[in-house]
Design a protein around this nucleic acid. Structure first.
Lengths: 130, 130, 130, 130
DNA sequence: GTGGTCTAGACCACT
DNA sequence: GTGGTCTAGACCACG
């Protein structure tokens, strides 16, 4: 796992994103153990508190589960409800990114092509691990 | 202009975005005057410092120009050649939104369709004013 | 506000509960400002971090809203969806308390009477402030 | 006996609760033998230390008795006179659940009805075994 | 060993 | 002034 200390994005949020990424790519699957708070903190050279914050956030989201005294485990992708509210929020963010691209002089075709590239880059590693 | 005080996005950044939006939609064009710092601050019920920060940011990006004693004016869309570095940054952000959508259980077609919807929703108002 | 440092219940959780209590009692209502993180920390003689944790938890629950640089405000009781899942969770907890009471030798009437007492004690202060 | 490793409630406490439940339901009565520490640990796939902790806790409460060389037995429900201090503790917990329910938009009648449901669900199985 | 909580400080961006 | 994040330590309950 790699984090960017210089990024404006909080470290704990970067950690959460990395785990989500590994999940949808198939590197991790339900039941897998993830490093303990202290181990990951050591590995990333950050304080355990920051890792703990990341983990508790992921647990709140139902992505991981902690077993007291044992460790932390992947709980799986909670795809129960394709939440429309959540999709709306993402749409709002996408709107800003699209505006940015339009602003940079790109047309519809180019925008869609870029999104396709991005999508494929995410799914790229999936087949090898699913 | 409307801003959301509760949003996690800084107010000064919201202001900048609104101007960019009005620009690509054709509501504003090169040479148009925009409200003074104090006027806009009054109108939005925020402190002038915040508006000043937004304006100086926009000026730094070459989007507006201040003429001492005259006011502030739109300088136009600066870049004609799509900046590859900028596009890369946007791609990174898009990656996160896409992951979010995949995580919500959406496939490639659905993701692309959503982006198309978003794109069209931006361009919808444009023709009437361009 | 009073907290019990000796309680096994985390301080941040006690703070959250106190605010919920003040909300349903009518002592606080939508839009009211609540003390800043530092002020409350000073008042309770605890570290700001603990108050911050309590506040961020409350914000996640939609009970308060923070306005950057301004402070934190009550967002109101989110009674949009009387969530059945939530009610089920509470039922599970109630079951344990009821078992405890049965174990202490109480019958149905007595249990219901106790719950009624408790309910009334909560609602007691409400009329004066609603 | 079933325990939930992921629950935030300690395992040893879950075990104690299960025995209390079986007691008030009539599944177990004074003099009945209960599994040895090692057997129960094996059956639940947990470490014997945890079961030992649960048993010593139950013994402290006068609910079970260990006879050296013979095994462990139910000592019966110890208290015939409702302990007022204990009831007060439970009331505090009930207060929290009630607040939760009020917060979810429920009124007095609904709260009492829920408690009645819960009470009946506990007593339901009792008659068949008492 | 594990995670959860708390302290006491610091720096930062925003208003 | 505000809240958000992070560090570097500590103690605790649990298994």
């Amino acid at each position: 796992m790699e984090i960017d200390l210089k990024s404006s994005q909080p470290i704990y949020s970067q950690i959460g994103e990395q785990y989500k990424y590994m999940l949808i790519q198939g590197f991790l699957k339900k039941g897998d153990a993830i490093p303990s708070v202290r181990k990951l903190a050591l590995q990333l050279s950050i304080t355990p508190g920051t890792v703990a914050k990341a983990y508790s956030e992921l647990e709140r989201q139902g992505i991981i589960e902690t077993v007291r005294g044992k460790g932390t485990f992947i709980a799986g992708i909670p795809k129960d409800t394709p939440d429309k509210g959540e999709i709306l929020k993402v749409k709002e963010k996408l709107k800003k990114e699209c505006m940015e691209l339009i602003y940079l002089g790109l047309g519809k075709k180019e925008v869609l092509q870029i999104v396709e590239e991005v999508y494929d880059s995410i799914k790229k590693g999936e087949k090898a691990h699913a």
